[in-house]
Design a protein around this nucleic acid. Structure first.
Lengths: 238, 238
DNA sequence: CCTATTAAACCTGTACTACAGGTTTTCAAA
DNA sequence: TTTGAAAACCTGTAGTACAGGTTTAATAGG
């Protein structure tokens, strides 16, 4: 009784067909992250296409992060991951289909919500971690790379504390392009006072989340984005 | 003067390296959607890996929708597209890493914003199209499939009218899973009066956008999601 | 009977060849 | 200059081969 059977492919787009068939296999067999898929040879036989086609299909699914591949290992179902959406966003920016202001407006919209949700749902540990990143920004004030990484980690930690993986996915995907523009905003702030003010805002936000105050958290997040967007405008980036 | 040169790959992950190299090629040569990439044979020679590796790399990029492939045609740079994020979302739902309520909360957050932006930025044509979908929902009341498709098109049209492709991308990516749960919400509404009320809300929203009233548009969108989420709760889906 | 070790079986990653059939370019004829 | 056809180019799929990684099975020892 082989439950893992699949119908063989017909039609023109062999690789696309195999991608669909394998995705369906995951769905219909209720596979969860970590579960193993059939070996390439078996898929090749079941779907009646060459191993070449199966490999290209698996590579496609691996690029989309639906499966994970490894030498000698059978393909496994993958955990949710922002890498593929991140590529989409970066592609959009590189090819002038998305601009930075649009990224920031999306972030503001979503992060006002993650801040409010985090205030309601964060664990003690998460509250501490968020606060930790805000403090680390202040403590590493001289090293802008350090500040940036803690800034990014701060926002992602809030998204995760919102307990909605969709938000974490999207915010995570923005980090790649944010890393490329963040230094511009940092430099464009007129003086260290403005930079310190930005850090202070992070600290206030972290405290609002720790205090469980969703309204303040959302307000502070909005204010933070007001400042950031203004800084990027000053820099002429937008 | 061959501007299209690329350094040959070193290290372990040949396919991953090729993906990165090709993505970098697009960036460094300022390629835009429609522009052609070097042929597989040339990439293979430049990067000093077999055509097998190049093909798998191009398949990966095609899965992510950074490039487009076609028999006989050289690979071209692709337009922004929600297909790959859509796969991520569907995978998350299928593997129990995302639930429907989380999708709806993300939608509500984003669509309250797209509604407001659409009210400010929609063209006359877009306003008409949005209104058209709302009316079509009412006119095709008996055919729930028709209602659903116009509902989906309505929301996507608003996202596009917001003039932020990031929102359109995300809302578009949600449509796949929404199509699977929408009928549940429709059936769970107690009677036709409730269903008519939902249509009326769409119409009001379309009119607020046409009238250029961002506050009302956002409010109505939020009210719409309140109702939808309540309907899904009633159905026990959430 | 249980555990640790080792050998065998299995599996993927990369390279190469071959060819069908689609696309683009070239070139000659009108 | 335009048209049309041939040539060159290119991708899609199949298949073979083998190195090296992983899993499973078997064996030995307690």
């Amino acid at each position: 009784m082989e439950n893992s059977s699949t119908q063989h492919l017909t039609g023109a787009d062999f690789v696309g067909g195999a991608v669909t068939a394998i995705a369906r296999f995951i769905r219909e067999n209720d596979l969860k992250p970590g579960d193993r898929l059939p070996a390439e040879a078996k898929l090749s036989k079941d779907l009646q296409v060459s191993r070449t086609v199966i490999r290209e299909a698996l590579r496609s699914l691996a690029a989309l992060r639906l499966v994970e591949l490894g030498a000698g290992k059978r393909p496994t179902v993958a955990e949710l991951d922002d890498a593929s959406f991140s590529m989409t966003i970066e592609h959009g920016v590189v090819t002038d289909q998305i601009d930075i202001q649009q990224i920031y407006d999306a972030r503001r919209t979503i992060e006002a919500r993650t801040a409010a949700l985090a205030a309601l749902r964060r664990t003690e540990g998460e509250a501490r971690a968020i606060l930790g990143h805000a403090k680390a920004m202040e403590e590493n004030f001289g090293n802008s790379d350090e500040v940036m990484e803690h800034d990014l980690a701060f926002h992602l930690a809030i998204a995760k504390a919102s307990k909605n993986p969709v938000f974490a996915l999207i915010i995570g995907a923005f980090q790649g392009v944010t890393r490329q523009t963040w230094p511009i905003g940092w430099k464009s702030r007129a003086n260290d006072d403005e930079r310190r003010a930005m850090n202070a805002l992070h600290l206030d936000l972290a405290q609002a989340i720790a205090a469980g105050d969703p309204q303040s958290a959302a307000d502070l997040m909005n204010r933070h984005f007001d400042q950031s967007i203004k800084a990027l405008l000053n820099a002429g980036l937008i």
